[in-house]
Design a protein around this nucleic acid. Structure first.
Lengths: 329, 329
DNA sequence: ATGAAAGCGCTAACAA
DNA sequence: TTGTTAGCGCTTTCAT
């Protein structure tokens, strides 16, 4: 294995000069620089990262801890983070907490052990509720989930606003008995619930909402039950893609005509929402931008540890499609 | 920061003994072991990974380089790999090559620099064509893509067989003018193409296949064109989920009744294939098992570097659904 | 079973 | 601008 002394010897300089050259520091003559570069190339030298990290204390590695790697929302965020990390020549540990606080704690500890430069995290509700950023030896940026009083850099959707606008649209289309199904674990479901409540209240309509486990099977069961009940909904709203999927399956199974008898809408512009008939009205989250913003916040935080906390709130995009347009169909 | 000497002092032993205890080596008395454990706990000691790696040359870290992190197929594999790595207390660098040989090369070099214990890789075709495992200082396990003569551990689908059975099913249902759309870059598309050709030949039917870029827009355009042509297909087969999506959109847009006028089927049991009407017949790949098998192969290879090359070929599952059942509908 | 001590390859403080 | 050198914190040989 070729090491820094070999390069130094070959180039006729000291190891310090080689070190300066390979880490792009100033204070090296063009001549020496050229000789080192040549020696590096000739010998195929690659610095030993473990040695460098031990000595320097830096790793140039980020952690990304997502709640569910199989959820396309997080997959898009991961993609954006990976892309920017690649451009910045940083590595990233991508970890999947699977909504499990224990796994989340394990990975957070691992990040500490790895001495990462920073971590992007979509926290479980349990962690979010009493998050002390000072507990962590690295800067933290939250994505997707954040409470109003959390004092940490974060980038989230304006959940209240998005949900308000979605509900408002349904009301404008003439739907009245609008039922909202939302994920009970997590912070986004309840925030979206609030937007729904506000929009309904503004229109003077009675509300009904069901907090459920965020799984399509649960949404299916609840929707099925509601559709068969005494006063069935004329619109079903979902606070997430998974819940929306369950609703769509239930409506299909029950043979309820959409959007005439019942409208359907929800969050997350998943590919299938355009493939089904009718296609589904959704709120599109700017996933790529969320990931991009998160890693930029993190990089800036690393550069300036003392700067004020910043929370970026992004607006969702309402995509009007067939499942909520009673009039045009 | 607390280090190993602090623990040694506190426990009244040498650093060597502490090192033995924390890495679970034998040759330490129960008494010493207990004192060390207590000291570790009392001081909240965590070993410095950089130092450990520099000295030991081991990292207990794996690399996973996927072709496209946004593809649910790879997302499922990532999930399985992550799960098993977690159980084995190993870290994993998840990288997304995005089907780009340059990015792939970068990440492979990064794996070398990181001195990872091993790498799981879904290679680009360019790399697969002349893959020299001896070029890499770490063991390699291929997933999803592998040529017949590649001498590397691998776990793949039996693409020929799966495609054969899918085609056979369509023939049995009475379809005759079956056109196959497959991804031209990559090794799986052509392998699946061969299965289609064989099944058609066995039935004495004329074949038509189109090699296309594996994007839904391309599949849409080609399918649209075929459906409007002089002798339109009575069945369209896709070699991947993305191509299948394009076909479904095109058929829907053209208003062709499925499965009566035209059947549709393909690869990958994506959620939406059950949501559309009719639901789509597909080959389900055992994604979880693929990921699991890959990491197990890798762990065993690390333990026994000299064992013979093993290639695991898994069988796809044919899920019969509405889009190909002309008779029952 | 235990300890003393030699480095792993690199960076950065300091000297020149 | 350049070189010398002292460690970073740990593992592992080699004694005992």
């Amino acid at each position: 294995m070729v090491k820094i002394v070999d390069v130094a010897k070959q180039a006729g300089v000291s190891t310090a000069t080689v070190s300066r050259v390979i880490s792009g520091q100033p204070g090296v003559s063009d001549d020496a620089r050229a000789r080192v570069d040549a020696a590096v190339k000739a010998l195929g030298y690659r610095p030993d990262l473990a040695a460098r990290r031990l000595r320097s204390g830096r790793t140039d590695t980020l952690g990304l801890i997502v709640s569910d790697i199989r959820n396309p929302f997080f997959t898009e965020i991961s993609h954006a983070v990976e892309e920017l990390a690649y451009q910045n020549r940083m590595r990233v540990f991508l970890c999947n907490a699977d909504e499990d606080p224990e796994k989340e704690a394990f990975y957070l500890a691992m990040m500490r052990d790895e001495n990462v430069s920073g971590v992007i995290l979509s926290p479980t509700l349990a962690l979010l509720k009493n998050l002390r950023p000072t507990n962590y030896p690295f800067p933290l940026v939250l994505v997707d989930r954040c409470e109003r009083d959390t004092q940490v850099d974060a980038v989230v959707l304006d959940n209240f606003d998005a949900s308000y606008r979605l509900t408002e649209h349904l009301i404008a289309e003439g739907y009245q008995r609008i039922i909202f199904l939302y994920g009970s674990i997590g912070s986004t479901g309840p925030q979206r619930h609030q937007g729904y409540l506000a929009a309904m209240a503004a229109a003077g309509l009675a509300t009904q909402a069901e907090a459920i486990a965020p799984r399509s099977e649960r949404a299916y069961a609840v929707a099925e039950h509601l559709l068969q009940g005494e006063s069935p909904p004329d619109a079903l709203l979902a606070s997430s893609g998974l819940i929306l999927q369950g609703i769509v399956e239930a409506v299909k199974a029950a043979g309820v005509p959409v959007p005439v008898a019942c409208a359907v809408a929800g969050f997350d512009d998943l590919p299938w929402t355009r493939l089904v008939t009718p296609d589904i009205t959704v709120i599109r989250q700017p996933t790529h931008e969320i990931g991009q913003t998160a890693i930029n916040l993190l990089i800036e935080r690393v550069a300036q540890p003392e700067r004020a906390v910043r929370q970026v709130v992004l607006r969702g995009e309402l995509l009007l499609r067939g499942s909520t347009q009673r009039n045009t169909k």
